[in-house]
Simulated assay, not measured.
Amino acid sequence: MHGPASPGWLLVALCAATGAYCLLRMRSTIEEQRRTAGGEALMGFGMAAMAVPAAVVAPPHWAWLGYAAVFGAAALRALWSARGGGHHLHHVVGACAMVYMAVVMAVSPGHHHVHGGSGVPLVTGALLLYFTAYVLLSGVRLLPVAAVTGSTGDTGGTGAMPPGPARTPGWGDRPELSRACRLSMGIAMLAMLVTL
């Protein structure tokens, strides 16, 4: 991608770390979470590879076409999985954004604008709006929720909930970590789209 080398390497590190965490999430006992984590790991590592500063390693033309093919297949798989709802529609948009960026880089590897005119191309602008909204919504979901006082459960007058079999979720099943992972990938996607 275009842009200075230092922020580019930070973006590579963020995406690679996110992809590595998503690989850990694939050890979950819940099949849907494993499948989602696999798609997110592919996205994280793909974004890390695409974010390597062009001044350091300029990928050949065929590499961008390879990215487009891999993420096109990922978009089709996510679209197939989206029939059941859930987070898969976001994966479709993310994979399509990766295809778009790869095609732009393949067509115009040395130029910031591929449409000849001034301003931001329509598709880039739409993706920027989508990922900005996604990042803001993901950030809000990470905010801690105040503890609800005066619950209706029987607390025995102590204010504490009665003891019960509490299961500590594993690293792959922690929803706040999954949300933080998606937030970091959304921020990275915004950074990549801005440099396009």
Results as ranks from 00 to 15, higher is better:
Met1His: 15
Met1Phe: 07
His2Lys: 15
Pro4Thr: 00
Ser6Pro: 14
Gly8Ser: 04
Leu10Ser: 14
Val12Leu: 02
Ala16Gln: 04
Gly19Met: 10
Gly19Ile: 01
Cys22Glu: 10
Leu24Tyr: 15
Arg25Pro: 06
Arg25Phe: 15
Arg27Met: 10
Ser28Trp: 06
Ser28Ala: 15
Ile30Cys: 11
Glu32Leu: 13
Arg34Asp: 06
Thr36Tyr: 10
Ala41Leu: 09
Ala41Glu: 05
Met43Tyr: 08
Met43Pro: 02
Met47Pro: 01
Ala48Asn: 02
Ala49Ile: 02
Met50Gly: 01
Pro53Thr: 01
Pro53Asp: 01
Ala54Val: 15
Ala54Tyr: 01
Ala55Trp: 00
Val56Leu: 14
Pro59Phe: 09
His61Ser: 09
Gly66Met: 08
Gly66Leu: 14
Gly66Val: 13
Ala68Met: 09
Ala69Lys: 07
Val70Phe: 11
Arg77Gly: 09
Arg77Lys: 07
Leu79Gly: 14
Ala82Met: 06
Gly84Val: 11
Gly85Leu: 13
Gly86Met: 10
His87Ile: 09
His87Asp: 13
His87Cys: 12
His88Glu: 15
His88Val: 04
His91Arg: 14
Val93Ile: 14
Val93Arg: 07
Gly94Asn: 07
Ala95His: 11
Cys96Leu: 14
Ala97Ile: 06
Tyr100Thr: 11
Tyr100Phe: 08
Tyr100Glu: 14
Ala102Tyr: 06
Val104His: 03
Val104Lys: 04
Met105Ile: 00
Ala106Lys: 00
Ala106Asp: 03
Val107Met: 13
Val107Asn: 09
Ser108Glu: 06
Ser108Pro: 03
Gly110Asn: 09
Val114Lys: 01
His115Trp: 07
Gly116Trp: 03
Val120Phe: 01
Leu122Asp: 13
Leu122Arg: 07
Leu122Ala: 15
Val123Thr: 10
Val123Tyr: 04
Phe131His: 05
Thr132His: 03
Thr132Glu: 02
Ala133Pro: 02
Tyr134Glu: 05
Tyr134Phe: 13
Leu137Ala: 15
Gly139Arg: 01
Gly139Ala: 07
Gly139Gln: 00
Arg141Pro: 03
Leu142Asp: 01
Leu143Trp: 10
Pro144Arg: 06
Val145Trp: 08
Val145Asn: 05
Val148Pro: 00
Gly156Pro: 02
Gly157Ile: 01
Gly157Glu: 04
Thr158Ser: 12
Gly159Ile: 06
Met161Asn: 10
Pro162Trp: 08
Pro163Val: 09
Gly164Phe: 13
Pro165Trp: 09
Gly170Asp: 10
Glu176Trp: 15
Ser178Arg: 03
Arg179Gln: 12
Ala180Trp: 02
Leu183Thr: 09
Leu183Arg: 05
Met185Thr: 07
Ile187Lys: 06
Leu190Thr: 03
Ala191Asn: 06
Ala191Asp: 01
Ala191Ser: 12
Met192Ile: 05
Val194Met: 10
Thr195Met: 13
Leu196Trp: 04
